[in-house]
Computed example of a mutant assay.
Amino acid sequence: MEKISGLNDWVLDKKVPNSRRFAAVKISLQYPDPALFIDLKPKERIKAIDKVFKENYQKLISLNLFESHEVEPPKKRPRFIIAKLKYNQLKKLNALGYVAGIRIQSIDDAVLNVKEAVVLDKYFCVKMTVVIEVEGVSSKKQDIEKRFVLIRAKSFDDAYEKLEKSQDDYVKPYLNPDGRFVRWRIESYDDCFETNIQSPADLNDPAGVEVYSKLSKRKNTAKTVWDGKF
């Protein structure tokens, strides 16, 4: 079930049949191909995209798969659904073409497999520069983003390689509130930092987890000299 993430992190109680087991999931609906709306005017594109999401949401709900569900805002464009459904219905949900992804949040009568979550790979934070390009806008200054991405990999090179393979997903255009196409294009990979994170459980540390660090120098002044007092 290729669209489902987190499924292998759980160990099911074999005494409980899957027909009686429930799973809590977060579902993301497929964003329609923007090229389908390229001939429309900006405001018409917004309405057309909203209509597609509403129609796909209604199709999903009409299948009566959910014990309960709620939609993440905004409701005029329902992209994400938090739902509870029977475990044995996941396969049917996975097969729907208008469903982009399914994230397992919890499973009844199952425990999180900590050993499965702890992998040999390390956790790296990659710093990148992303250029924000807006259709038809040629202002003197262009918006950019300094993005930090946490990724699991075997080495620095492996981290860069994984991101390069998936960079086409970042550049897929979408429509802004003005109906113009926007894309966030990765311009460069600027740095890579190996973190001390060993497993996802480390992220629960109340003191936080360091994901990026870079040493530099600055001019020392009388105001910045520490006197050693606490």
Rank of each mutant, 00 (worst) to 15 (best):
E72R: 14
V25M: 01
I132M: 07
D205Y: 04
S28V: 11
T221K: 00
R218T: 10
A207L: 14
L7V: 02
Y87D: 14
I38T: 13
Q89K: 14
Y170A: 15
A95V: 09
I144M: 15
E116W: 04
G228F: 01
I197A: 00
A207Y: 15
E194Y: 11
S62Y: 12
D109P: 02
V118F: 03
V25A: 00
V114H: 13
E72A: 11
D157K: 15
E187D: 14
D108T: 13
K217Y: 12
R185H: 08
A110G: 00
K154T: 06
D39V: 11
I38H: 06
V137L: 13
L163C: 04
Y57I: 11
T195I: 06
K41M: 11
A95Y: 13
K223Q: 14
D39L: 13
Q142E: 12
F80Y: 10
P78S: 06
E133L: 07
A153L: 07
K15W: 08
R79C: 07
I81K: 13
N56Q: 12
P32F: 04
R147E: 12
S199C: 11
L12E: 00
V225Y: 00
L90W: 00
V111K: 13
K165A: 05
F148L: 14
E187F: 09
S68L: 05
K86T: 01
W10C: 01
A23Y: 00
N8L: 10
D227S: 09
I46D: 00
K51G: 03
F181K: 07
D190G: 11
K47M: 12
L150Y: 00
W184Q: 10
V137E: 15
I4T: 12
A201D: 12
G6P: 01
Y31W: 04
G208M: 10
A35N: 13
N220L: 06
A83F: 02
Q89F: 11
V209C: 13
L90R: 00
D39N: 15
D33A: 05
E2W: 06
K14A: 15
L215I: 07
D158C: 03
V131I: 07
H69N: 13
E164Y: 11
I4S: 05
S213I: 03
K229M: 08
S213F: 12
P32G: 06
R20C: 04
I49W: 02
S216N: 08
D121V: 08
K54E: 06
S213C: 13
K76M: 09
L40T: 01
K14F: 12
D108W: 03
R77F: 03
A117L: 14
K217D: 09
D50I: 02
K75S: 07
L29I: 07
R77I: 09
K122I: 03
T129I: 08
G101K: 04
I107L: 05
N220K: 03
E145K: 08
Q142F: 08
Q30H: 11
D50Q: 05
S19W: 02
R45L: 10
D108F: 05
Q30W: 06
E55H: 04
F22M: 08
Q142G: 04
E70Y: 12
L60F: 02
K219W: 05
Y170D: 14
S155M: 02
F66L: 11
K162T: 04
F37M: 09
A100Y: 06
I61F: 07
Y98E: 07
R180C: 11
G228P: 06
Q58T: 14
P78H: 06
P78T: 07
S213T: 12
N196E: 14
